[in-house]
């Protein structure tokens, strides 16, 4: 049996949580199954598609190739934890208005990557936007409408500042 000390503690969507299971468990499984944040999607399990993206200390990372042990004392956000955040809401509205959502399976991961970009760069170029989401596959939209959605969000953020 594990002792209390073996628990992995981290901040998840603003709350301190701990996980007592196997430290090698994949973060995606822990988030989806133990904490029921199913907004984190699994598309490949190989770190390629970006559907499982979460914010790890503000950076977008694929949670399917990260053992939960590595997030000890770190801060994780999934889309569920961002619902009340203004910048995220602006992104959501922009995705809806720009027609950037089809099947939606890539969308939460895409939102995470877009959010991470806008947090670090409030006026990204087209190329920077492309680069920021190049690790997020979308098989439905052809990507240009997603890029436009992010640009729309940039403009709206500029207006509200």
């Amino acid at each position: 049996m594990k002792s209390q000390n073996d628990k992995i503690t981290f901040i998840l969507n603003g709350e301190k949580v701990s996980y007592a299971g196997n430290p090698m468990d994949r973060l995606v499984d822990v988030l989806r199954e133990n904490f029921e944040f199913t907004g984190v999607k699994e598309g490949c399990g190989e770190g390629e598609c970006g559907a499982c993206s979460v914010l790890l200390d503000g950076k977008n990372v694929p949670s399917c190739i990260i053992p939960v042990a590595t997030v000890q004392n770190k801060e994780i956000y999934t889309v569920e934890g961002l619902r009340e955040v203004k910048m995220f809401q602006i992104l959501v509205n922009s995705f809806a208005d720009a027609g950037a959502v089809q099947c939606g399976f890539c969308t939460p991961g895409m939102m995470i990557s877009a959010y991470a970009l806008l947090q670090s760069n409030n006026n990204p170029t087209d190329d920077e936007i492309r680069e920021a989401i190049s690790g997020n596959f979308c098989r439905c939209t052809g990507m240009n409408m997603i890029i436009e959605a992010i640009k729309l969000a940039v403009n709206r953020l500029g207006e509200t500042e």
Binding site: G39, T78, V79, V92, F95, V101, G104, T107, P108, M111
Partner: peptide, 16 residues
């Protein structure tokens, strides 16, 4: 018009 399912999909509410 906007798609009716966009918001739930963006916010992770849609269940697959």
């Amino acid at each position: 018009i906007n798609r009716v399912d966009a918001f739930d999909k963006c916010t992770g509410k849609t269940k697959y």
